[in-house]
Structures are given as C-alpha cells and as structure tokens.
Design a binder for these strands. Structure first.
Lengths: 218, 218, 218, 218
DNA sequence: AATGAATGAGTTTTCATTCAT
DNA sequence: TATGAATGAAAACTCATTCAT
C-alpha cells in the first residue's frame, strides 16, 4: 500500500539526506557539522536525530542513497545496450552527467577516499560498489570478446579495472583542476582509447582511435 | 654548509613532519588532531607550535616535503632515461614503490581529495604538482612521437592525462581494496596498455600488448 | 463500582507505572529517560504524556504506588499480630520478601536517596513514609513495654529508629554486595538482636540471642 | 622530592575535586553537570577535561579522595585505641563529625546508592570500602571477645555488619529528615546499644544500656 | 627550544516536552 | 486514547590555540 500522499516524516527525511549529500560532497564527513546539515535541510538538529541515530548513520544513509542512485542510472541506461562499445560510451556519458549536473559522483569519490581506513563500516559499501562496477565492466568486455569485437589476449577483468581507473582518475583530475581538464572530452577519449586498444588485430584502424584535440584547456 | 651534528631542534622538527605525514595519510587533515601528531612524534603540543605557526602550516610543510620527495625520486630515476617506454615503466615502478614501501603516495591522494574545495591554499600545491606531472609525461610522449616510436594521431597532453588518470585510479582502487587489487601487476599493465595503444600503426603487434593474467586477486 | 472489564487506558497506565518502577529502581530518576520507560511499557511517549503530566508526575505516581503497596503489605501481615516479637519478625520477613522477590524495596531506597535535597516534592512522601514506619514500630515497642516483655529504660521511639536503621542499612549493604551479604540471615539477626537487647533484665538469657553462624557469605 | 611550592596545576586539580564532591553530594552524579562543577571550581570546562578524561574519571577521583579521606581519619582516631568500646565510640563520633561538619559522609552514601547497578566501575571501590569497614569492625569485635569484654555467642562478622547497618541506616534517616532525627544522640545510642547487647552475660547491667531520652526531635 | 596548564568556541548527542492528526 | 514527528535547551566532550615559565 503506497500512501497517496507521502507522510510528513518521509519528506523531511529526504531533505535531510539531500542536504547531507550536498554538504559531505563539498566538505567531507569530518568537515561537515550536524548543525550545518540541519540548517541546510531546514530542520532542527533534533529532527535529524529523530531520523538518524548518529552522524555516521546519516552518512551511511547518504552513501546508500547515492550508490543506489548511480547504479540504478547505470543499469537503466547501459544494461539494455547490446553493443559493448556503446555500453562503454554510455558508462562514461553517465559519469560525465552525474559529475557535472550534480555533485553526486564527487560525493562518492570524496567519501570513499576519506573513509579509506578511518571508517571501515563506511568503506565496506564503497568497496562492494567498486567490485560491482568492475564486475559489470568485466561482463561487458567478456561479451565483446565472445562476439569477436574485442581482442582476447587481454583479460576482461584487467581491462575492466583499467577502465575504472581511467574513469576515476579522470574525474579526480577534473575536480581538482576544472580549469585544466575538459571532462566530457577526456571521458570520451577514454572510451575511444579502450575501443582502439581492445580492437582485435585484424580490425584495428586509426580512425577515432586518437582524439587529436587536446583535452587540456586554456 | 651542512653542520656536522644536526641541532636538536631540526631533529624534532623532522620527527614532527614525519609523524604528521603518517597521521594525515591514515586519517586525513580534519581527522587528525594536533595532540595525536605531537604524541606520535614524541613531543608536546607546545614544541609543535614552536616549529609551526598552526595546523595548516604543519600540513603545508608535510605536503611540500612529500611533493618534493616524490618529484625528486621521479626526476632521479626517470629523467635520465632516453627511451620513452622505459620512462613510463620507471614512472609506474616509482609509484608502486612509493605506494607500498611507505604511505607517501596515499598521503598525496588523501590530502588532495580532502582539500578539493575546502582548502584552496592546500589545493594549489596539489594542482601545481598534478600539472607538472602531466607536463612531464606530455614531454615524454612528445619525444616518443618525434622519435617515431609513438603514434602521432593522439595528442601528447591527452595521452599524459589519461596516463595520470590510470595511475591514480589504480592506486585508489588498491588503497580501497588491497585484497582485490594487485598493485604491481596492475601498474605494469598500465605501461603495457600505453605502449600498445600508442604504438604506431605499422609496428603494432599483439605480443606483450595484453596481460593475460588477471590482476584481480583470489 | 468496579467495571467488569477494565478499560484499555487503565491497563496501559498500569503498565507504564510498572515499567517506570522497574527502570527507576535500576537507574534512578535522572538515569532513566522517558523514552526508555515508554519502550519498556510498550507504548509511545505520547501515550505516556497522555497519562502523566510530566516525568515528575510519573515518578510521584510510581512512588505513591510503591509506598502504598509496601505499607498495605505490612499492615496486612503485621498489624493483626498480638505478640510484639512476632510483629518484628513479620516486618523483617516482609522486607526480605519485598527486597528479593521484586525490586520494590530497592526502588524506595534508590529514589529516597536520589531525592534527598534535589527534589523536595519527592522527598516529602518518603519522609512521611519513614515517619509512619518509625511510628508503627514505636507503637510495637511501646506495647511490648506495657506488656512487660520489653525493658522500659530504652525509649520506644529510639528503639524504633534504631530498628529502621538496622533494616535499611542491611538492605543497602545487600544491594551493594549481594555476594557478600546473606539478606534473610542478616534480617533475622536484626530481629534476634532487638529481642535480646530489649529483653527486660530479669528475663534475659543467652539462648537464641546471638546468631553464631556468620551472615558473611563465601 | 616534594616541591616547596605546589605547582599551579595541582592546586586547581584539588579545587576541581573539591567542587565535584560538593556538587555530587548535593545532586548526585547524573544530576550534576560538568559545567556546574567547573563554575564551582572557578575553572573552565577545558581545564577540567585537562585533568580528567571524562565525567566518570572525575567521579572516580572524587570517590577515591573521599574514601581515602574517611579511612585515614578512622585509622588516625580509632586504631590506636586499645579498648574496643572506646573504638566503637570513636567510629560513631567520626561519622557524626564527617556527616555534620562536611557533606563527605553524605557524598559516599549518595554516590554508593546511585551507582548500585548503573555504574559497576564506581560500585567496585564502594564495595571494597564497605568490606574494609566491616573487616575493621570484625577485628574490633574479635579483640573484645578475646579480652572477654564481649559475649562470644555472637559471630564477630555479624556484629560488624549489624553495626555498619545501624550507622548507615541512621545517617540515611538523618539526611532524609534532619528535623526529625538527632544524629549525635542517635549515633551514641548505637554505640550504647552494641555495648549493651554485646556485653557478656555475667557483666550485663542496665546502666548506660538504654538512652531514656528519645532521639526523635520536635 | 620547549613544557604544562588552560581557554573557549565548537562538536556531537540526549532528552523532556509539545502538537497536529 | 493514542501516535509520529519535531523542537530546543542543555549535556558531554573535543580541539586548535595561547602563554607564563
């Protein structure tokens, strides 16, 4: 039974999570005070503690929300695609969009790094997410190899891991130097790089393999 | 003139910086208290404030130390090499060593992410370091293109940026999932990937291009 | 007119009082949160505030319940007895039973001490209860003196006060060190002590006067 | 090496402990805020947390101080006495003085009750103190029995326990009803009661055995 | 070149209480 | 006769920083 009109509590809960994602993205976990989140959400600290037992519980809620959100979008846009190359394109496009339209990719990156050793309970969901991400790409590469559109002397899991590395490393460079890095161009270049690198020997061609235009801005 | 016997003050200063690097690597800037650094260094807080004006000053000292340290090592081991491919190998080897032998690479990653927007003063040296890193690799790729050992339909700055992305993204995956990622193998795979991808059309061959053995552990 | 079937409200009210007595006994007034009582009673905080104006009102309810309960039991079991010695035996037996079968004696002790100065409104009922207790025993000793079974060179009110002291002091030692104190034995020893001490000179005898077996356990 | 002039830190530490004893006696542990103790001691909360790691640590400090203080006084005044009866007199006199001149006895009683189950770490020192108190009195009674001034058909440990009960129970009645209870008279009555009750059969006499004047005031 | 003590502003968290439904 | 959500004041505790010695 879904209630026709959402209850008051659910709405403010979502506003708290949304404010938390925003603040944590910008200033990290330690750098964000409960007070600031409450203010940003337009509720009192008490309301926040009514919904979440402590700061970490709130962060876990935010993480779950964002990981779910990202994976749902990926599944929606990418899984249906038959063509492995199109799938990789869709992955990088999704990342670009999530990184520029909202700060949701940055939230994941920031919190993942901050929680590395300091918060094992928080690290776990991130680690699981990264593994799922690599597994998803491993499947994509494996399918491409079975179809013969990808070379098979490169192990699919390795290709997946390098792809993830390229995406994350590019995002990090972008967040760190938005003036110096053109994210959409760079991300498309990753797709092109892997299309080219993973092409089977006989079919390899230069066209599209290299992006002549530098992604270094200014 | 290096004094034969170092003064007492210099020694405790270095111990403070060393303790700071250690603590910051593990718990980040906000997650590390002055107290903890002082205790780890075996001095009192007062001593720490004698050497550094405030916490940020200490962090700047640690960052300078680590950036200098990393770049000096890269310059020492890599610059002398004539062969671009050998240079890339040397870069990834250096990163592996700095990431595993000490937590100095992780220090850079952790602090770079933490300071993204929150601390512009800290972001600046990192941004500059990343630019120097990309410029250094741009030169390497440019030289390779001039020698004809690298294809020239890929812009050298783009190749450099993608190379940096792959290295950082791989390190992050490793810190986040040391059980799941074999860092040395993965890093060597990056060098192999770029050697293969950047090879000029006529010379491209499969052998060595792909690492059949997965880098995903157990 | 007792309604055949108790109303729903009355039942939950009694469950709240019962939960409150339990929690207050264990953790005191300040140490018990409204939330915990509500949870223990299986109701919401709102329900609790429907029945009681505030926390202190609830405590007053619990105190009244327990003081009434204890005094009713004493009256039932003790008052009918003709023999003063049997009356004292009955008093200590009642205390033993209320101290071991439930935590109702402990509730009284705990709250009485906690409210000493801090809550005059709460101290009053306890003070009144203690006075009634002493008066009741004063009567018992007076009757014994009139009958000639108790010496009359000891003032009855003093004997009463010392008897109360012995009972409470023994209970406290028991709550504080249940391993070290054997409550039933100790309490019976109090009755024996007063029987012996209060015996008139001519009748005094040794037999039964002292409990040879120590009440110190282990 | 005792420094001729006490260091600044030691003095404010003692002032904090003293303020804590005062506040805890009056309002109990839960009822006393750190803020209030700091204000009463004339220091800031920070100073308090410099000397004590948390509220419980401060309470432990206060407890140790008070238990030590009480036991030192008892040892000083009582141990040297050869005569067991004089020793019991000295014990009750000491209790009267500690209960009326300062609130130090009340501190012990209040905190002992409050910590019964709620704080096992705090209960331990109290339990140990009570055991030492009983043991001390057991020795006193044993010596009296060996000298033949006390009957020996009452076990010394039991007599000790009953004596402690009488003392504590009387103190509690006094704190609870200072108008209704005359502490010095009541306490002396305890000593008289035990002198009388414990007298060997042949020597028993009435004089001094009973206090004709009631201790019930007003 | 350092120490020990202290500050004070800020942090997370708790909790009695209220109120619309 | 309740419930769920929320408030706000106060609690415990942290921590960068200062300063007399």
């Amino acid at each position: 039974m879904i209630p026709a009109r959402e209850r008051r509590g659910d709405q403010s809960r979502r506003e708290i999570v949304s404010a938390a994602i925003d603040c944590f993205s910008r200033s990290g976990y330690q750098g964000t005070s409960i007070d600031r989140i409450a203010r940003a959400a337009g509720v009192t600290k008490g309301a926040l503690y009514y919904h979440f037992k402590d700061k970490q519980d709130l962060l876990l809620g935010a993480i779950a929300d964002r990981i779910d959100g990202f994976e749902r979008v990926v599944v929606e846009r990418v899984t249906s695609l038959k063509d492995p190359a199109a799938a990789l394109d869709a992955v990088v496009d999704t990342c670009v969009q999530q990184a520029t339209a909202s700060n949701h990719r940055r939230f994941i990156l920031t919190l993942m790094v901050e929680s590395l050793d300091a918060y094992p309970e928080l690290s776990d969901p991130f680690r699981a997410m990264m593994r799922r991400f690599r597994e998803f790409l491993t499947q994509t590469f494996t399918i491409g190899q079975q179809k013969g559109v990808y070379r098979d002397d490169v192990a699919a899991p390795l290709a997946a891991q390098l792809f993830v590395a390229a995406v994350i490393g590019t995002e990090l460079q972008f967040y760190q130097d938005p003036q110096g890095i053109d994210l959409p161009t760079s991300m498309r270049a990753i797709a092109a790089q892997f299309r080219d690198w993973m092409a089977p020997a006989e079919r390899r061609s230069r066209q599209g393999g290299g992006a002549r235009r530098s992604s270094e801005k200014g």
